[in-house]
Amino acid sequence: MTNSVESKRATPGKRERLAAAAAQVFHRQGVEKTTIADIARAADVPVGNVYYYFKTKDQLVQAAIGAHASELDAIIAHLEELDAPAERLKSLVRGWVEQRDLAARFGCPSGTLATELDKRDDGLEEELAAVMRRLVDWAERQFAAMGRADARELAVALIAAYQGISLLTNTFRDPELMEIEGRRLERWIDSLA
């Protein structure tokens, strides 16, 4: 669920920088391999200051989920500026394709975190599922606006296609796979209009 939307917000404070850094470092290293010092370094915050904002690594995971939610909100706000639902969906796909090199190295940020959290069974997986569900719900609204009675199934198919191609792009370390699938998804969206 990545996209290259520029934020128009003020410079984030330490808490927000730590949350964003946690999301980034967890994506690149995984939750289990990441230390609080890694996150502090990425956020350019002294390690001791991290504990002022987050007492545990799980709180940092929760903050990273919040960072994913904020990024999704920014992406959706950007997409909502487009007039037609099909164009919104295709723009979403193009945003995914723009992140193909990152996907080739680390996979989808939300998808890889969801996979890792699912193994923990501590409730955090449900928080991330809620964020991912928001993207599926948004896509469903776009397909419904296109007059599709099967909007839910199409939304699930779109997000599943992205998650699947992210996995393959990462597995084979081949960003071109994301480009190929992106073009196919755009043609598919056009065929549904």
Rank of each mutant, 00 (worst) to 15 (best):
R94C: 04
E80A: 15
G48F: 04
R133W: 03
C108W: 00
S110D: 01
I65T: 02
G66Y: 05
G66L: 06
L60W: 07
P109Y: 01
G48A: 12
L92M: 05
A74H: 15
T112P: 01
E127W: 04
G111P: 02
H68L: 08
L92G: 09
V93H: 01
Q59S: 07
G66C: 02
D73Y: 11
A103M: 06
G95P: 05
V61G: 03
M132T: 12
L124C: 03
K90Y: 09
A114E: 05
L89H: 10
T56Y: 05
D83V: 13
V93R: 03
R133Q: 15
V50R: 10
E80H: 06
D122C: 06
R120M: 13
A74G: 14
H78W: 15
D121I: 08
D101G: 01
E116V: 03
S91I: 01
A77C: 11
E116I: 08
I65Y: 07
F106T: 04
P85Q: 13
Q99D: 11
D73G: 14
L72Q: 15
D137F: 11
R100F: 00
A63K: 04
E116T: 06
Y53S: 07
S91H: 08
A114T: 02
E125Y: 10
T56R: 07
D121V: 09
K57I: 06
A130H: 14
Q142W: 08
G123V: 12
G123P: 13
D137Y: 08
L128V: 12
D121E: 13
L79I: 13
M132Y: 01
D122S: 07
D118R: 08
R100E: 10
E80R: 14
L117V: 07
W138I: 05
V136P: 03
L92N: 11
S70E: 14
L117Q: 10
R134P: 01
A64R: 06
T56P: 03
Q142L: 06
A104R: 01
L72K: 13
R100T: 01
Q99R: 04
F106W: 13
L72R: 11
P109E: 05
L135F: 11
A77W: 09
E87K: 15
F106M: 00
R120F: 11
R94G: 03
A67W: 10
E87G: 12
R94N: 10
S110H: 01
D122M: 07
R133D: 15
K55D: 12
A84G: 08
A139R: 09
R134Q: 14
G123W: 05
A104C: 02
S110Y: 00
A77Y: 10
Y53R: 02
Y53K: 09
L92E: 08
V93S: 08
F54H: 04
V136F: 04
K119H: 11
A84H: 15
L79V: 14
Y52I: 14
Q99G: 05
D122N: 15
D73C: 06
E126I: 08
V131T: 13
C108H: 02
E140C: 15
V97K: 02
H78P: 05
Y53N: 07
M132P: 00
